[in-house]
């Protein structure tokens, strides 16, 4: 009941989109990007500083150590995490109306979980299923036309929006098959530990893959908080559009204004 109340409260905070399906997608790509409000900037900056501290003490050293592991170990870990993520991607493919992609991802999951030994190897990519893109409930809500709501920084998890946080909540109340298998239901095969270990490892894997890029950005930013916010929001925008080309995601009117001055 408490979770349902949280969902209802959050849905009020979100700006409501009026478009749906493919028309909504078209409308979304054409509209001029309205800036996402930073309604809780003071709190967000506080949590961001906390996360930076946590990164410096925990994630950065762990990621540095992870980078030292032999390449096949890192590759295998990354493959296994990617395979687990297919479990939440497939229902989101279906909810977004991408039935053919859902089919391909199901085949990908079956091949990699069996021939690929629990996802450690990725034979599916060699068989032509190589264009895998993770999807989550935040992206699905975005595709349905629901606005981002306010920008948020979550403790440990990092940048988000109210819509994306609603997506995380949805995953945790039954939307994520991996969460259901490990935390919600007692399957005797998996435990809570498997879920949280996979999430922490995913975080370390991400940090290691972007090790230099993140450190470089931090070093060269005058307002690191604002840079991360911009990166996150632009990245989410592109992912929701599933755009192959930049032209579809970029708004030219700002450049035109400079030209006209």
């Amino acid at each position: 009941m408490r979770r349902i109340i949280i969902l209802i409260i959050m849905s009020f905070f979100l700006s409501k989109g009026v478009y749906a399906g493919s028309e909504g997608q078209e409308e979304l790509s054409k509209k001029k990007d309205a800036p996402v409000k930073d309604c809780f900037e003071g709190i967000n900056r506080g949590i961001f500083a906390f996360n930076q501290g946590l990164d410096a003490v925990v994630f950065e050293p762990l990621a540095a150590g992870y980078k030292m592991l032999p390449s096949p170990v890192r590759k295998g870990t990354s493959n296994a995490l990617s395979n687990i993520s297919t479990l939440i991607t497939i229902p989101n493919n279906l909810l977004q109306g991408d039935f053919d992609i859902a089919g391909k991802n199901t085949l990908r999951l079956l091949i990699n979980s069996t021939i690929g030994i629990l996802g450690l190897f990725d034979p599916a990519s060699s068989l032509g299923f190589d264009d895998y893109e993770r999807e989550d409930f935040g992206q699905t809500f975005g595709k349905w036309g629901i606005g981002e709501g306010c920008y948020l920084v979550l403790p440990v998890l990092g940048p988000s929006t109210l819509r994306d946080t609603l997506g995380i909540v949805t995953a945790n109340v039954g939307g994520d098959p991996w969460h259901n298998l490990t935390v919600r239901n007692d399957t005797h095969y998996f435990s809570d530990f498997d879920y949280y270990a996979s999430k922490v490892t995913d975080g370390i894997d991400f940090r290691a893959k972007n090790f230099d890029a993140i450190n470089n950005l931090e070093k060269n930013s005058m307002d690191f908080y604002a840079s991360v916010k911009s990166l996150y929001l632009q990245d989410r925008h592109r992912k929701i559009l599933n755009a192959d080309t930049t032209v579809e995601t970029q708004d030219d009117s700002d450049w035109e204004e400079i030209e006209n001055e």
């Binding site: 930013s221 005058m222 307002d223 908080y225 604002a226 840079s227 916010k229 911009s230 990166l231 632009q234 990245d235 925008h237 592109r238 755009a243 930049t246 995601t249 970029q250």
Partner: peptide
């Protein structure tokens, strides 16, 4: 624009924030 992220836009939003 790297993987859909415009560096000019990141910079503009950083400047605006300051």
């Amino acid at each position: 624009i790297i993987e859909g992220v415009s560096l000019a836009k990141v910079q503009r939003e950083e400047f605006n924030s300051i």
